[in-house]
């Protein structure tokens, strides 16, 4: 099958599918009018039942907590897959060790302005702090573990572009990161199991709910959100390190 045939086949299918879809969508209720009862029920109840002001996070980490557990393990297994696929193979490791330096393959290292260096180092701390803030206030305002985790995990890239490669390598390749990834995933499941130990169904909110609007409120929602944050931070840090591993070792060779 050549490209032309493939595109032609796609065009026929797309026109057909688009026509059927549009005919069906024309019978939907207009999009500015929401009709389902469930959203209204939960929006009215969540604040009183769970003492969390952010209903979306209350649903994600409590009402639909089991789905999020599955999603968490999906992230875990995806990162495991990335690490398995991108791990250095044995012969490759030897080859890169023997390989002589070859500066031509890298573009000449462009000079880095001092402003960038100072700014990125200054912003690094601010960035991590902001990630922690977003991650721990998920039950009150928009935010939550996932968003905070991604922000924290992207922070070491600032050190990398500031040519502070040693610090970057020390943070990213620390064995603690892998431990944290496993810990985050396991802690979520353990919180669920703790409910079983007390004698109530899996992932029931067993902790005291606290005052609405307080940071230490909403029981297990805040705790699960923090666990997800730890897991996501570690997972994305690992992914970044796996992608950059070769380039890092090569840069090190050139420096020596």
């Amino acid at each position: 099958m050549t490209r032309k045939h493939r595109l032609l086949l796609f065009l026929i299918g797309a026109i057909g599918a688009g026509f059927v879809y549009c005919a069906g969508a024309g019978n939907m209720p207009p999009w500015t009018q929401y009709r389902g009862p469930y959203g209204d029920v939960i929006a009215g109840l969540a604040v009183f039942q769970r003492h969390a002001t952010d209903t979306v996070n209350a649903i994600t980490y409590d009402y639909r907590g089991f789905d999020t557990l599955g999603e968490e393990f999906m992230l875990f297994s995806a990162v495991t897959g990335v690490m398995l696929l991108l791990r250095p193979e044995k012969d490759e490791k030897d080859a890169s060790a023997k390989e002589p330096r070859n500066p031509a393959s890298f573009r000449d290292r462009a000079a880095l302005s001092e402003t960038v260096q100072v700014f990125t180092t200054a912003v690094f701390g601010l960035w991590v702090l902001f990630g922690i803030y977003i991650g721990t206030h998920g039950q009150l305002t928009p935010g939550g573990g996932f968003q905070g985790g991604v922000i924290i995990a992207a922070a070491p890239m600032l050190l990398y572009i500031a040519e502070n490669t040693d610090a970057f390598r020390r943070i990213v390749s620390h064995p603690f990161v892998e431990l944290l990834e496993g810990f985050g995933a396991a802690a979520y499941a353990l919180i669920g199991l703790a409910a079983l130990a007390v004698g109530v169904p899996f992932l029931t909110n067993i902790l005291p709910l606290g005052t609405t609007g307080n940071v230490f409120s909403s029981g297990t929602i805040a705790l699960i959100s923090a666990c997800v944050g730890i897991e996501v931070t570690a997972a994305f840090t690992l992914v970044i390190f796996e992608y950059l591993r070769e380039i890092l070792s090569r840069e090190k060779n050139q420096e020596d």
């Binding site: 960038v116 990125t120 912003v123 960035w127 902001f130 968003q147 922000i151 992207a154 600032l158 572009i161």
Partner: peptide
């Protein structure tokens, strides 16, 4: 907006 301001600054540099 606060997070986007911080993140787009860093992402632009990267």
């Amino acid at each position: 907006p606060l997070s986007l301001a911080l993140l787009s600054f860093g992402a632009g540099l990267v």
